[in-house]
Structure formats: C-alpha cells, structure tokens
Lab assay of single mutants.
Amino acid sequence: KELVLALYDYQEKSPREVTMKKGDILTLLNSTNKDWWKVEVNGRQGAVPAAYVKKL
C-alpha cells in the first residue's frame, strides 16, 4: 500500500473528508482525482486536498 505525508494541518469540512495533522502518515487509497485524494487515517476514510500531502 502507498503512504503519503501530511504537509499541513487540514480540518474536515464535510463528512466525506478527514482531518489530518502536519506530519501524519496516511494510507493512500485513491489518487485519480488531481485535486482530492482518498486516504485512510486513524481508521477513517475520506478525502484530503492533494496539494496538502506528498507521496512517500
């Protein structure tokens, strides 16, 4: 499985998103959308802005 690093804090704004903190390591589930990537963090799945994460 592919991992990404959170470059910034992000507070979810809808139920389809997830909150992450700078430095979090997230499991990347889907990166086909260039703006929003689906990730899993702390057992929750949701979208985060692609510009806020970097593939490891």
Rank of each mutant, 00 (worst) to 15 (best):
L3H: 09
Y8C: 15
L26E: 00
K1I: 13
K55M: 12
Q11N: 13
V53M: 07
T32N: 13
G46K: 05
V48K: 01
E17Q: 11
V41A: 12
A50F: 03
V39G: 00
K21D: 03
N42Y: 09
T19L: 04
Y10R: 02
N30C: 14
V39D: 01
L5N: 01
M20A: 02
A6V: 10
K21E: 06
R44F: 06
K38V: 15
N33I: 05
E17M: 06
W36C: 07
S31M: 12
K1R: 14
W37N: 01
L28Y: 02
T27Y: 12
A6I: 03
L26M: 14
V39M: 01
D9C: 06
G23N: 06
L56E: 03
E17G: 14
G23F: 04
Q45S: 12
Q11R: 11
P49C: 06
L3I: 09
L29V: 12
N33L: 08
L28C: 06
Q11T: 14
L7S: 02
K54P: 02
D24V: 04
R44H: 07
V18R: 02
E17V: 06
L29Y: 05
N33H: 12
E12A: 15
V18T: 06
Y8E: 10
D24Y: 05
W37V: 08
T27N: 08
P15A: 12
V41N: 13
K38F: 15
E2A: 12
D35V: 14
T19Q: 04
L5G: 02
S31E: 15
R16T: 13
R44S: 05
R44C: 07
N33Y: 08
L5E: 11
W36E: 04
E17S: 07
E40L: 09
V48C: 05
A6P: 01
V18I: 14
T27D: 04
Q11I: 14
S31Q: 12
V4A: 13
L29Q: 03
V39I: 07
P15R: 09
D9G: 05
T27C: 12
A47D: 15
A6Q: 00
V41G: 08
W37I: 06
V4M: 05
W36P: 00
V48P: 00
V39Y: 00
K55S: 08
A6W: 03
M20G: 01
K34D: 12
N30H: 08
Y10G: 00
K22D: 01
K34Y: 08
W36F: 08
E12D: 05
P15F: 10
K22N: 03
V48E: 01
W36Y: 08
E2G: 11
M20V: 10
N30P: 03
K55Y: 10
R44A: 06
L29E: 02
E17T: 09
E40A: 09
E12R: 14
E40P: 00
E2Y: 13
K54N: 05
Y52G: 05
V41L: 15
R44P: 01
K34A: 13
L5W: 08
W36T: 04
G23H: 04
G43K: 04
A6D: 00
A50N: 03
Y10V: 02
K22H: 06
G23K: 02
K38Y: 15
D9K: 03
V48T: 02
P49E: 02
E2M: 14
N42M: 09
A50P: 06
P15W: 11
K1Q: 12
K22Y: 04
T32V: 10
M20Q: 01
V39L: 03
L28W: 01
W37E: 01
D9N: 09
G23C: 08
W36M: 07
E40R: 07
V53A: 02
L28D: 00
V41H: 15
E40T: 06
K54E: 12
R44M: 07
A51F: 09
L26Q: 00
L56H: 05
Y52Q: 04
L7D: 01
R16G: 15
L26R: 01
W37Q: 01
L26G: 08
V39K: 01
T27A: 09
A50L: 02
L3R: 10
L3D: 03
Y8S: 08
V4W: 08
A51N: 12
A47T: 14
A6L: 04
W36S: 03
L56I: 14
G46C: 07
V4H: 02
D9L: 03
V39S: 01
Q45G: 07
W37L: 06
M20D: 00
K22P: 03
L29A: 03
Y10K: 00
S31N: 09
L56A: 04
W37Y: 08
Y10I: 00
A51H: 12
K13R: 14
K38E: 15
G23Y: 05
V4P: 00
E2C: 15
K21A: 09
V41Y: 12
V48M: 01
T19N: 06
A6C: 13
E2W: 14
R16Y: 14
L7P: 00
D9W: 05
A51E: 11
Q45C: 13
L28Q: 01
D24N: 07
R44T: 07
A50I: 03
K1G: 11
L7I: 10
K1M: 13
G46V: 09
K13H: 09
S14E: 07
V53W: 02
K34H: 12
Q11M: 13
D35G: 09
P49D: 02
E40Q: 09
Q45E: 12
L29C: 07
G46Q: 03
Q45I: 15
W36Q: 02
R44I: 08
K34W: 08
Y52D: 02
Y8A: 11
S31D: 15
G23I: 02
L28S: 01
Y52S: 10
M20K: 01
A50Y: 04
L28A: 02
N42S: 09
A47S: 14
L3P: 03
K21T: 09
Q11F: 14
A51Q: 11
K55D: 03
Q45W: 08
T27E: 10
S14C: 10
E2R: 13
Y10M: 01
S14D: 10
K13Y: 06
K55Q: 09
K22L: 06
